[in-house]
């Protein structure tokens, strides 16, 4: 992915040298044509076309922001309610991600979803221990959310 991006920048510079016009505008135009060129020759690389991971990263960032806003309002509603009827608890969640940065990203995403906070990652990186603030109404819903997060992260790294 990084190699394709570097190649695209190199093509943009080549365009600038052919035009003898060293401005940001000509760099952007060169980058665009380099992008089209790489898209046409995408079969020659053994990794995916680099726009897919970039797009997946963008989507992941939006998901992160949405989770933050949702979780904040969930917690605020819980605090402001006159009667505290919460059932906290720690549950285990087996995960498929193996690389360190993927687990870091997933655990921070979980920390920012409504009513969950990562407490520990097991030593063999296969289970996350999550503290939930209200365990019975949250659990199934959260499994769904986590599947979507895990899928989004896999989409980036695949």
């Amino acid at each position: 992915m990084a190699f394709q991006m570097l190649l695209n920048i190199f093509l943009a510079f080549t365009y600038m040298f052919m035009k003898t016009n060293f401005t940001l505008g000509s760099f952007v135009v060169g980058y665009f044509w380099g992008f089209v060129f790489l898209f046409i020759f995408r079969k020659l690389f053994n990794t995916r076309f680099y726009f897919h991971p970039v797009y997946a990263t963008f989507k992941l960032m939006l998901l992160f922001l949405k989770a933050l806003v949702q979780s904040t309002f969930g917690v605020v509603m819980l605090i402001v309610k006159p009667k505290l009827d919460i059932k906290p608890g720690i549950f285990a969640l087996p995960i498929e991600l193996r690389k360190d940065w993927e687990i870091l990203l997933l655990s921070s995403l979980i920390s920012l979803t409504p009513g969950t906070l990562t407490v520990q990652v097991s030593e063999d990186n296969s289970v996350l221990y999550i503290h939930a603030i209200n365990i019975d109404d949250v659990k199934e819903e959260i499994d769904g959310i986590k599947n979507s997060f895990e899928k989004a992260i896999l989409e980036v790294s695949r």
Binding site: L68, S71, T72, V75, V76, I79, L84, I86, P88, S111, L112, G115, L117, V119, H131, I133
Partner: peptide
């Protein structure tokens, strides 16, 4: 809130 973990929820999210 009653204990460290639940307080942690409130602080970590709302303050951010």
């Amino acid at each position: 809130l009653p204990d460290v973990y639940t307080r942690n929820h409130a602080i970590a999210k709302a303050t951010t």
